[in-house]
């Protein structure tokens, strides 16, 4: 009888595992299909997708060549996007770590009001400023200015990420600060030599947020950037796709692959920081 029971448990386990693998296989297929399809489209000769199959019969790299030989402004968009995203990331990290350290470690007059303001600004979506940005950038001649766009992104990043990082720094024991202070370290040295190294997980998270945020933004960038030479990747690639009957869709696919692969690798590399950074700091607020 116990043998029977053992067998039935074994059977149950086999059924459960088989079902699990089936579900996982199906989900994997749904995930991978569009990605592989894009790679296939990018290698598909000609501009139309009508004749395409998921693995093209006669693969061609002509669309990749088009991206580099100036048929479309791809390199320019890529450069603009990287410049904007990278600058936003660096500035955000500097400002956010400064504000988060101050809010976490010091009790100063106006601290609570400051935190309240940040909380409120974090809730009001940044496109509330859309009308102002659109109207004012036209009137002040800030149209097409990458600097203006970077500053707007940085401003939008500060409130939420300050909260994330403050939560994380709050969890770092103050004894560490105190013992360093005993050794004669000033506020700034404690910040550089103790707080920052211990905050690596949350810094990785904020770096990724502030890098990919501008990289995927469409709404603010289209209000400021108007001429093709100033476009970022989302605007440029969107214009390729928006052409009639998908006339440039295969070129778009090639451009998409070249941005998606590096960013995806970056994510996969940093994802272990994500969980520890967000569940340690994020849930505590």
């Amino acid at each position: 009888m116990s043998l029977d029971k053992k067998r039935s448990i074994k059977q149950q386990r086999a059924i459960r595992l088989t079902l699990s693998y089936l579900v996982i296989g199906l989900v994997s297929l749904i995930i991978i299909y569009p990605l592989v399809w894009t790679v296939g489209a990018s290698l598909n000769p000609g501009n139309s997708l009508l004749s395409s199959s998921i693995i093209p019969k006669n693969m061609s790299f002509e669309h990749y060549q088009d991206l580099f030989n100036g048929k479309v402004d791809y390199l320019n968009w890529y450069y603009n996007s990287m410049k904007i995203s990278f600058s936003t990331m660096v500035l955000t990290l500097i400002f956010v770590s400064f504000t988060a350290y101050s809010f976490s470690r010091f009790r100063f007059v106006g601290r609570n009001n400051g935190l309240m303001l940040f909380l409120l600004l974090q809730m009001i979506p940044q496109f509330s400023a859309l009308i102002a940005i659109f109207v004012l950038s036209q009137m002040l001649g800030l149209v097409n200015s990458h600097l203006a766009l970077i500053l707007i992104y940085v401003g939008g990043m500060i409130p939420m990420n300050t909260y994330l990082m403050k939560g994380f720094i709050d969890a770092i024991p103050r004894d560490l600060d105190e013992s360093a202070r005993m050794d004669g370290a000033g506020h700034f040295r404690i910040f550089i030599e103790i707080i920052l190294p211990l905050s690596k997980p949350i810094i990785a998270v904020i770096a990724l947020f502030s890098f990919t945020g501008p990289l995927g933004d469409f709404i603010l960038s289209t209000t400021i950037l108007r001429t093709p030479d100033q476009f970022t990747l989302p605007i440029g690639l969107y214009n390729l796709v928006a052409q009639k009957m998908g006339a440039s869709y295969t070129t778009y696919a090639a451009g998409a692959v070249l941005i998606a692969v590096p960013v995806a690798l970056l994510y996969l590399w940093l994802q272990k920081f994500f969980v520890s950074g967000l569940t340690a700091g994020g849930t505590k607020g």
Partner: peptide, 21 residues
């Protein structure tokens, strides 16, 4: 010290977020 650290971020915030809103 904390004011010094907050000021740069705060100025950006006022000009590109608070004022436009």
């Amino acid at each position: 010290f904390p004011y010094l650290m907050i000021t740069p971020g705060f100025i950006i915030l006022v000009f590109v977020v608070v004022f436009p809103i």
